[in-house]
Amino acid sequence: KVTYHVPNEEFARKLYKKAVDANLNVEIRVENGQFIIHIE
C-alpha cells in the first residue's frame, strides 16, 4: 500500500489514471489543499 501527497491536481489525475489502468485499487481525497492518493 502506497500513499502519495500531491500538491498538484494535474499530477494527481495522471497518477490516478495510471493506477486505474494497472487495475490497482485507488482512493483519492483532498486534505488541506493536497491530494492524498492511496494505492493498493
Rank of each mutant, 00 (worst) to 15 (best):
K14L: 12
I36E: 03
E27D: 06
N25G: 05
P7G: 13
K18D: 08
V6M: 09
R13T: 04
I37N: 00
F35R: 01
V26Q: 00
I36V: 10
G33H: 03
N8V: 07
I39Y: 03
Q34E: 10
D21K: 10
L15M: 07
I39H: 01
A12V: 06
V30E: 10
E27K: 09
K14V: 10
A12N: 02
V26H: 00
N8I: 09
I28E: 00
I28M: 12
K17G: 04
A22Y: 09
V26R: 00
V30G: 02
E40F: 15
A12Y: 08
L15P: 02
T3L: 08
D21H: 08
Q34I: 15
E40L: 12
V2S: 06
T3R: 06
N32L: 07
N25S: 11
N25T: 11
V26P: 03
P7Q: 14
E27C: 11
Y16S: 01
F35C: 05
Y16P: 00
E40Y: 15
R13S: 03
T3P: 04
F11L: 14
A22W: 13
K1R: 12
F35G: 00
T3W: 11
R13G: 02
V2H: 12
N25I: 13
E31F: 09
V2T: 07
Q34V: 15
V2N: 05
E31M: 09
A12R: 05
I37R: 00
N25F: 12
I37K: 00
A22I: 11
I37G: 00
H5Q: 09
I39E: 01
I37P: 00
E31D: 05
I37A: 01
V6Y: 06
V20S: 05
K17C: 13
K17D: 06
I28C: 15
N23E: 05
V26N: 00
R29P: 00
L15N: 02
D21A: 13
R13D: 02
L15C: 15
D21Q: 12
D21S: 10
I37H: 00
K18W: 15
E9N: 04
H38W: 11
R13L: 12
E27Q: 10
N32E: 05
F11C: 15
E9I: 12
Y4T: 03
P7Y: 15
E40M: 14
H5A: 10
A19F: 15
A19D: 02
V20L: 14
K17R: 10
K18M: 14
H5W: 14
N32T: 04
E9H: 05
A12T: 04
A22M: 13
R29K: 09
L24K: 03
E27T: 14
V2I: 11
A22V: 06
I36W: 08
E9W: 14
L15V: 06
L15G: 01
L24I: 05
R29T: 09
Q34D: 04
K17H: 05
E10C: 15
K17Q: 12
D21T: 08
K18L: 14
T3N: 05
R29H: 10
Y4R: 04
K14G: 03
T3H: 08
I37T: 00
F11Q: 13
K1Y: 13
F35K: 00
D21V: 08
G33L: 04
V2L: 10
D21F: 10
H38Y: 13
V30Y: 14
N8Q: 04
G33S: 03
F11P: 01
E10Q: 07
R29S: 08
I36F: 10
V30C: 11
Y4A: 03
Y4F: 11
E9A: 08
E27W: 14
H38R: 13
E9S: 04
K18C: 15
P7C: 15
V20R: 10
V6Q: 03
T3Q: 06
E27A: 07
N23F: 15
F35N: 00
V6D: 05
V20Q: 11
N32W: 10
I36G: 01
N8P: 05
Y16Q: 02
Y4W: 10
P7M: 14
K14P: 01
A22F: 12
P7F: 15
H38A: 12
Q34H: 11
R13W: 14
K14F: 12
V20I: 12
V30P: 02
K1A: 10
R29Y: 12
N25W: 14
L24S: 01
E27I: 11
A19G: 03
N8H: 05
E9R: 04
V20E: 04
I28F: 10
Q34M: 15
E40W: 15
A12K: 03
I37Y: 01
E27L: 09
R13I: 09
Y4I: 13
H5F: 13
H38L: 14
L15H: 02
V20D: 02
A19V: 05
R29Q: 07
N23M: 10
K18A: 14
N23S: 06
K14I: 12
G33E: 03
K14Q: 11
K17T: 04
Q34S: 10
R29G: 02
N8E: 05
K1M: 09
R13K: 09
A19Q: 02
R13C: 15
A19S: 04
K17I: 10
E10D: 09
Y4G: 03
L24H: 02
E27R: 09
K17A: 10
I36D: 01
L15R: 02
A19M: 13
Y16F: 09
I28S: 00
I28R: 00
I39R: 01
G33P: 00
E10F: 08
N25E: 07
Y4N: 03
I36K: 03
A12G: 02
H38I: 15
E10H: 07
L15Q: 02
N8K: 03
E40Q: 11
E40S: 14
F11T: 13
V30I: 12
I36Q: 03
F35E: 00
E9L: 11
K18I: 13
F35I: 07
E10P: 03
N25M: 12
V2F: 12
T3S: 08
N32Q: 05
K18G: 05
I39M: 04
N25V: 12
V26K: 00
P7E: 14
I37E: 00
N8G: 06
H5T: 13
I39P: 00
Q34T: 11
V30M: 11
E40G: 11
A12D: 01
R29D: 02
N25R: 14
H5R: 13
I36T: 07
V2P: 04
E10K: 06
K18H: 08
A12C: 15
A12W: 13
H5G: 04
Y16E: 01
Y4C: 15
H5M: 13
Y4K: 02
E40N: 12
E10G: 05
Y4P: 02
P7T: 15
N32M: 07
R13E: 04
N32V: 05
I36N: 01
I28T: 01
I36A: 03
V6E: 03
K14N: 07
R13P: 01
E27M: 10
T3D: 05
R29V: 11
Y4E: 02
V2R: 11
H38T: 15
G33M: 04
A19L: 15
F11Y: 12
K18R: 10
N32I: 09
H5E: 06
H5C: 15
K1T: 11
E40T: 13
N32H: 08
K18T: 08
N32R: 06
E10R: 06
L24D: 00
Y16G: 01
A19I: 10
I28D: 00
K17S: 05
R29F: 11
H38P: 00
L15K: 02
V26D: 00
F11N: 05
N23Y: 14
I37S: 00
H5L: 12
T3K: 06
N32Y: 07
Y4V: 10
N23W: 15
R29W: 12
L24R: 03
I39N: 00
P7D: 15
D21R: 11
H38N: 09
P7H: 13
I28N: 00
Q34R: 10
K14S: 08
A19N: 02
V30A: 05
K14Y: 14
N25C: 11
E27G: 04
D21P: 04
L24M: 06
T3C: 15
L15F: 06
K18N: 08
E10M: 06
H38G: 03
E27P: 00
G33Y: 07
Q34P: 01
E9V: 08
K1Q: 08
K17N: 07
V26S: 01
A22R: 07
N8S: 09
V26Y: 02
E31S: 08
E40C: 12
V2Q: 08
K17L: 09
A12P: 02
V6T: 15
L24W: 08
E31L: 11
